[in-house]
Design a protein around this nucleic acid. Structure first.
Lengths: 355, 355
DNA sequence: AGCCGATTTGATAGCGCTAACATTTTTCGA
DNA sequence: TCGAAAAATGTTAGCGCTATCAAATCGGCT
C-alpha cells in the first residue's frame, strides 16, 4: 500500500472516480465550468463537496506554468500610507482565488530588484510595484515579466504596463498654493526620507513659490532620515532657529506635520496665526488634532483596489483602455492654515482637487 | 523540438549535465551540501552560477510535500502594532529561503478559520498566528497542522505549540497602578474595538482599581467601533459629560490617548494637572506629543523576530526549550501623568517592567 | 589481502495537475 | 436523413523536483 505524500488529502483523481468522469474533466469543471455539461458539472461539484477537495496549488503551478499569486512590492511595511494601499489590495483579492506575495524593499532599489527577480522566478499572475524609479535592470525585468504589471502611487508618461496614482508634484503645488492664498508669505518646507515621491512634492512646493515670487531655498529643511513625529519637531525647531520669521510650513507627510504642531505648542507659537501647518496624506488623526491640521487627502485604499481591479482585468485578457489612472488628491483645509483675518478662508466642505 | 513550458529557465537537469553528475546529486548539493563531496559540490555550485539556476518552488513543493512558506495571520493591516510585528517577521526571514504568506483576518475568527484552512492546504513550513482566541475548529486545525505553530501577542498556559507575547492583563494593571500611584483617584477607561487583547487590558485596569478601592464601573467607556484618534476625542467627551470629575484616563491604545489629549486641549483642560492621560503601545509619537504622553512600551518588532526565530528553530528540528516566551512590557512615564506636586514622580530613565 | 560498514552517487518512480491532441457525441442546416 | 462542424469528454505525456532504494566507492581493521 503506497503512502500518500500529501497527508491523505483527496486528489483530482479521487474526485474524478467519485463523479464517474476522467480527471481532466474535473480539472476543466473547476477551471472553466462553461466547458463542461451542466450534468457532469453538478456531479463533479457534489463529489468536490463530499470529499472536501482542495486543489493543490503547487501541482497546478507546475503543470500549467501559471499561478494565482499577485506579487506586491512596497518600500515600507510600517508607513500608514502603504498599509492602506495594502488593505485595498487584500480586500480586492479577498473573494478571488488569488493570493498575495508581499515584498518589502525598504526604500532600496537594489532590494527591490532582488525581490523582483525572486518573485518573477515564481511566475506570478500579476505584479504590483510602488513607484516609477526602478533600476534599469528592474525596469527590464518588469518589461519582460510576461504578466500584467501595475505601478502604483505615482503618475508618469511611460508606464511599464499600467499605472494608478496621482501627481506628487501637482499635490505639492496644490498645498503650497493654498498656503500662499491663505496669506502666508514665508513658507518653509519640512521633508524626511526624501524618496522620489517626496522629492516630487518638494518640486511642486518650489514651483508654487517661484510662481508667487516667494521661493527662498533657505526655508527648505530636508533630511534623508526616516520620517517620524519627533523628527517633525526637530526639523521645525531647526528651521525656526535658522529662519525665525517663517510663517508657515508644508510638511512632507502627516507625521512631520503633527510633530510641527507639537513643537509649536511646546514653544507657545500660535497655530495658525503665528505659524500655519499643512501636512500630506490626510491620515485620520489630522482632523482630530487641535487645531485640526490641513492636509492633502490621498486615496490610498483606492489606489490599492484600483490596481487589483486593473490587474485582474488584464489577467482575464481585458486590459483596461486607460492604462494610466489618475486618482487625484483633495486638499483638506482645516484650522491649522486658517489665519485669523485672512481674506480667503476656503470652506471645509469643498475640497480642492488637483488635476 | 519540444518547447519548454517554463520559459527557457534552466532546470536541475541542465545543471546536472553541466556539472557532469545526476540531477539527484544536484538536488542534494542544494538542499543538504554536507551530503555531497566537496569536489562535486564545487562543480555543481559553478554550474548553478553559470546557468543562473533558480530552483522551481512549485516542483519542489509537489515532490517533497513541503514548502518554504511561513503563513502569518494577523487581524489588521493598518494597525501600527501589527505593522511592527510584520516588519520583525519579514526582517527575520529576509536572508533565508523562506517566504511569507500573509492573511488579514480583520478581527473575525470566522475569517481566521477560513484563512487557516486555505494556508494549511498549502502545507506551510510554519504558521504564525495572532492571539489565542481561535475558534474550536481553528484550534483543531492548528493542533493538526503538521508544522510548527507560533501564537503571538499574548501569553497563555496552553499554547498550541509555541508562543511569544506578553500579558495584556498585567500590562493594563501596570499602567493603572501607575496612575493610582501618581495620585489620580477617579480614573476612567477608554476602549475601542474591544478585541480579546483589549478586554484583558480592561481586566487589568479593573483589578488594579479594585485593589486600590477605586473601581467605578461608570468610568469605563468602551465601544466595539474600531479605534481612531477622533474616537478618542469622542470617548473622552462622553466620559467627561457623564462623569465630569474624572481625573485620569487609561486609553486602550495610543490613538485613543492622542485623541484624548486633543480633546483636553480643545476643552482647555490641563494635562496632567486636571486630567492625566496614559496610552498603550508607546508608538513613536507618544514621546513627541506636548505634553509627552505616558504609555506602555510593547516590544512588537521583537515579538515578530522572536516568533520567526522560534519557528525556524522548530523547522530545523530544534524546538526551543522555552515554548512560551514573555517579552514583557515597559511603562514609559511621561509628562501626561506627572501631576504637579505629586509625591511620586518616577524617573523616565528607569522604566518599570511588568512581570 | 579481504571484509564490513559507512559514505557517496545514481536509477527509478512518482508528487497532482494540465497541455495537447484524440475521440466521441451532439447539433443543425440542406 | 445525412454529414460536417461544434461541443463534450477522454488519453497520454509530461511539468521540475525529490523519496526511495540500489549500486558503487571508500576507509579501517584484522
Amino acid at each position: 500500500m503506497r503512502r500518500r505524500r500529501n497527508g491523505g488529502r483527496p486528489t483530482i483523481a479521487d474526485v474524478a472516480k467519485r463523479a464517474g468522469v476522467s480527471s481532466i474533466t474535473v480539472s476543466r469543471a473547476l477551471r472553466d465550468p462553461e466547458r463542461v455539461s451542466p450534468q457532469l458539472r453538478q456531479q463533479i461539484e457534489e463529489a468536490v463537496r463530499a470529499l472536501d477537495y482542495v486543489p493543490d496549488q503547487h501541482a497546478r503551478a507546475l503543470a500549467s506554468a501559471r499561478t494565482d499569486v499577485v506579487g506586491v512590492i512596497i518600500p515600507s511595511l510600517t508607513n500608514n500610507v502603504f498599509a492602506d494601499v495594502l488593505r485595498g489590495i487584500y480586500d480586492g483579492l479577498a473573494q478571488t482565488s488569488h493570493q498575495v506575495q508581499l515584498g518589502n524593499s525598504r526604500y532600496s532599489p537594489i532590494e527591490e530588484e532582488r525581490l523582483l527577480a525572486t518573485f518573477l522566478s515564481q511566475r506570478p499572475a500579476a505584479l504590483i510595484v510602488a513607484g516609477i524609479d526602478q533600476t534599469a535592470r528592474s525596469r527590464e525585468l518588469l518589461e519582460n515579466a510576461g504578466c500584467p504589471v501595475v505601478q502604483i502611487m505615482e503618475l508618469d508618461e511611460g508606464p511599464v504596463d499600467m499605472m494608478v496614482g496621482f501627481s506628487h508634484r501637482a499635490a505639492g503645488h496644490l498645498v503650497t498654493s493654498h498656503l500662499v492664498e491663505a496669506g502666508y508669505r514665508r513658507i518653509g518646507f519640512l521633508g524626511a526620507r526624501m524618496d522620489p515621491r517626496t522629492q516630487r512634492r518638494l518640486e511642486g512646493y518650489r514651483a508654487a513659490l517661484m510662481e508667487a515670487g516667494l521661493y527662498d531655498p533657505d526655508r527648505v529643511t530636508a533630511t534623508p532620515t526616516p520620517s517620524s513625529v519627533t523628527l517633525g519637531r526637530d526639523l521645525l525647531r531647526d528651521l525656526l532657529a535658522r529662519m525665525p520669521d517663517t510663517d508657515a510650513v508644508f510638511c512632507i507627510n502627516d507625521d512631520l506635520a503633527l510633530g510641527a504642531l507639537f513643537e509649536c505648542q511646546s514653544a507657545a507659537l500660535a497655530v495658525p496665526d503665528t505659524i500655519g501647518i499643512a501636512g500630506f496624506n490626510d491620515l485620520e488623526m489630522m482632523a482630530a488634532a487641535w487645531p485640526a491640521l490641513t492636509s492633502v487627502r490621498t486615496p490610498r485604499y483606492e489606489i490599492g483596489s484600483r490596481a487589483v481591479q486593473m490587474a485582474r482585468a488584464a489577467i482575464a485578457g481585458r486590459r483596461p483602455a486607460e492604462r494610466v489612472v489618475d486618482v487625484g488628491v483633495e486638499l483638506q483645509v482645516r484650522a491649522s492654515t486658517m489665519r485669523r483675518g485672512s481674506a480667503q478662508v476656503p470652506s471645509q466642505k469643498a475640497p480642492v482637487r488637483a488635476i
